[in-house]
Design a protein around this nucleic acid. Structure first.
Lengths: 340, 340
DNA sequence: CTGAAAGCGCTTACAG
DNA sequence: CTGAAAGCGCTTACAG
């Protein structure tokens, strides 16, 4: 049915070896041979099979990406940058958007392994026994976006420090009653670490931590709205500021506050996290912890490709890098300073 | 280096045929043979190569998706739904996010073809000669999201009617001076068709179309902001309402209007397009044309898989379906009726 | 129920 | 510079 290298060879009157050579333009071939081959390819509309090539070369030029939520602007940003950078370097992306289902994560890790992807980017931050096992066993280079404490190549920011900075900023503005719309504690970085940073900042400034002021969401807008509604219902007047672990949740919180007839930052100050597009859209714009999406994406691809391309040279499982990138506090209009 | 089916066969003391059989659990194998094989697989930590399998079976279970902008919430929504639905049916997604570069589109179409994906979803709406040629020649099932007038399987809404509806709605609210923040005319549906719908509605209601009130953007927030700034600078007072061809542009327009100290809908009414999350986030919420993202995604996957799975039975290139889904006008707070 | 062998479409030493 | 042949890791008639 479809035309294969043998057909091209026959049409051009040369060997398949020669066709392969002009296709991969490595070794020298004579001009007229090349011309004959190119013409045959053209005429037969030949499309070489990367499947066969991958099998033979033991290399697919595929990178698998497992991402929790593409509809989050922050994650979409990273995905699109990774796609672009990897694309320029000859790699294509296999992507799985896995919402909240840890079992599906290992299912897809295994599929990627069976597909013989050259590398994997894992953006999920929740570990279970199966995932841990996979990461320990697999021969495939994996870059993770969370500190799992298991000596894996990692690209992250310092979420503890970032949580600390956000909270300290609010404190410096005179706030002493600060609620937190946090993530899931099982998320190592975006969840747990940011909460720890918040708690440490409170502690360091002699502020009692009130459990009732800490709520846990899923980083999405709707949960920010819902949790803020709870806070207003159950604790109104007991906090003057809120630290949200994502811009989406911060935006949901702002919407909720405004829908209750209150003002941001007049009545309640809100600080977000990520520095995604939504921070610019909101009015007031969100003050937020900006993550360096471009650096995160670059470093992720660089690190992964370095491992992939090194593999031939030496299976240097030894030098596992952890790259910690710096965040930045972006001061916009959603926080105000209050008299102490 | 890595363990292959032959190693498993040897370890289990059976033939590779038998190992293959238990792997694909089709034909009957005796319980004890199966047990031996499973144990060997377990012990050797065997991961079968989908590459080899694909080559043999001539099927990759891969779908290539070419998408203009993942960071658009609307498109991210569709992508994530397609991923989920296709995933449930055993297909994985190869995705390329190609911003505005038509040459790259055909480059990736060719790569997908070489990778022998089972099907392709093309979301770009701009055609060039190379793309047209590819679509005409390829044997791979492709579903497109725009009416290219070339008898391809298509899933769309009626963008003309939707543009007509949006504009008529504004007219029914008493507006007679309506600006449009449109897309690129070379985008067959989201661009051209929506503009034609706008123009037809104006015409049908005896409204002169003023070219200066039609601006062309790229569907993103920033361009909506910029174009609205232009409109305010060059034509303020000459329009009381704006129809934007995407919610993102509508949001940018609203931001711009508000940043100029004006009010939506008090001073200017704005209607958007897509029904994406941003329409819910804005205050006021955006009145918008809501596209049925779930239906679009479902139909896309259904149609594509139908073609893929039919191929064996009959190469029914004949019955090319075009599925037109219905949109809906979602009335929220960004338009007001004015006295005529 | 089980196995030996051909073949999927390429690449790559090896020899000339 | 060019080609014949082995082999990548599977599946699948075919035979028993």
């Amino acid at each position: 049915m479809s035309v294969k290298i043998k057909d091209v060879a026959r049409a051009a009157g040369v060997s398949v070896t020669s066709v392969s050579r002009v296709l991969n333009n490595g070794d020298h071939v004579s001009e007229k041979l090349e011309k004959k081959v190119r013409r045959a390819i053209e005429e037969l509309n030949y499309s070489p099979s990367l499947i066969a090539k991958s099998l033979k070369r033991n290399k697919t030029n595929l990178i698998g990406v497992i991402i929790p939520d593409i509809t989050s602007n922050f994650q979409a940003m990273i995905l699109s940058l990774i796609e672009e950078i990897a694309g320029r370097r000859g790699y294509n992306l296999l992507v799985s958007n896995i919402v909240e289902d840890t079992d599906k994560v290992v299912k897809y890790l295994n599929i990627y392994q069976e597909m013989r992807v050259d590398g994997i980017v894992l953006m999920h931050e929740k570990l279970n026994e199966d995932i841990r096992l996979f990461l320990n066993k697999t021969q495939i280079p994996v870059v993770v976006h969370a500190d799992f404490g298991m000596n894996l190549p990692t690209v992250i920011i310092d979420d503890f420090q970032a949580g600390y900075d956000a909270t300290s900023y609010l404190i410096a503005q005179g706030h002493r009653e600060i609620a937190m719309i946090a993530g899931d504690k099982r998320d190592v970085c975006a969840g747990l670490r940011r909460i720890e940073g918040y708690a440490a900042a409170c502690r360091d400034h002699g502020i009692m931590i009130e459990e009732a002021l800490i709520r846990h969401g899923d980083y999405k807008l709707a949960s920010g709205y819902r949790l803020m509604a709870e806070l207003l219902r159950e604790a109104q007047g007991r906090f003057s500021a809120v630290f949200a672990a994502s811009d989406d949740m911060a935006a949901g919180a702002v919407n909720c506050i405004q829908d209750h007839g209150l003002h941001v930052p007049g009545d309640i100050s809100v600080i977000g996290f990520d520095g995604s597009q939504i921070a610019e859209i909101m009015r007031p714009r969100l003050t937020t912890i900006k993550q360096p999406v471009d650096r995160i994406s670059e470093c992720t691809v660089d690190l992964l490709l370095e491992m992939i391309e090194e593999q031939g040279v030496a299976k240097s499982k030894g030098k596992m890098k952890t790259i910690v990138l710096s965040h930045e506090l972006l001061e916009q209009g959603s926080c105000r300073s209050i008299e102490t």
